[in-house]
Nucleic acid binder design. Structure first.
Lengths: 137, 137
DNA sequence: GTGCTTGCAAATCGTTTGCAATAGC
DNA sequence: GCTATTGCAAACGATTTGCAAGCAC
């Protein structure tokens, strides 16, 4: 699936900027920040503004075409993969890894928990990643 | 257990400000922001500064005497309850509720996952809370 | 007195807002 | 032309920093 199809699927009218940003999210599974998306695209779209990146990412999140991750207390990150999975943040290198969803699978289908209506599930793990551990020696 | 004992347990030297802030966290299980802690205490400690609240909360977190919650993308919240449990954020009223830990219990004792060294587990759920659902009618 | 703690004021920086310019149908 | 989209510049606001004053042993 390409970016245009993805946008259309979520009821978002395509534009040059929107396709570029969705395209970036689909090809870079790095959980980028708004700033990283902007920096990566401002060469190919010289008129791109940070405001548009913020607006567009918010549009994607509102339409459930992307996830907003709050795993990092400083920066908001975005994930184009909206399937159910968990995340791991390395305290040392700052990278965010995907992990298989670790909760009970049944929970993901439960519309409520203790009477609350669940719309989002975020499972975050933090520590030191394998790569950083290996460098340690 | 009182605030002084709690601080001492985590190797933190007590002071008027530290006891007041830890005392607040222990008696108010509302997952307050730094600003809420400051506002609640600045009457009884008129010279209290926000800087001290930030510094002290960071000290608690660094010494594992409190948890920093990033469930809200705008504000960092703090939790004096460091036991393993999950959190629920209501999109409508903004309150954060405690939930029993929903993951596999064994996972909480696992020091690593896919080779990564896990130091923290945060399970966040978001949606509309029971109270807000009832108000809806 | 030495070192830790506190607190003011200013700076920082990610994000949002107001609004005018532009593009698409 | 009308509406939606974009983008600049300014504002905002939570948090951090620099540093001087205060406190404790």
């Amino acid at each position: 699936m390409n970016a245009v199809e993805r946008l259309t699927e979520y009821g978002i009218k395509p534009s040059v900027q929107r396709m570029a940003i969705m395209g970036y999210l689909m090809t870079h599974r790095t959980h980028p920040t708004a700033d990283e998306v902007y920096s990566a695209l401002c060469d190919s779209i010289p008129t791109l503004s940070k405001t548009t990146v913020y607006n567009t990412l918010k549009l994607f999140v509102d339409n459930r075409a992307a996830l907003m991750l709050t795993i990092d207390d400083k920066l908001v990150r975005f994930d184009g993969d909206t399937s159910l999975h968990s995340h791991f943040l390395c305290h040392r290198c700052g990278k965010v890894y995907d992990l298989p969803y670790s909760g009970k699978k049944s929970e993901a289908r439960m519309p409520n928990l203790e009477g609350h209506n669940i719309e989002e599930i975020h499972h975050y793990y933090k520590g030191v990643c394998r790569e950083c551990l290996e460098k340690e020696v």
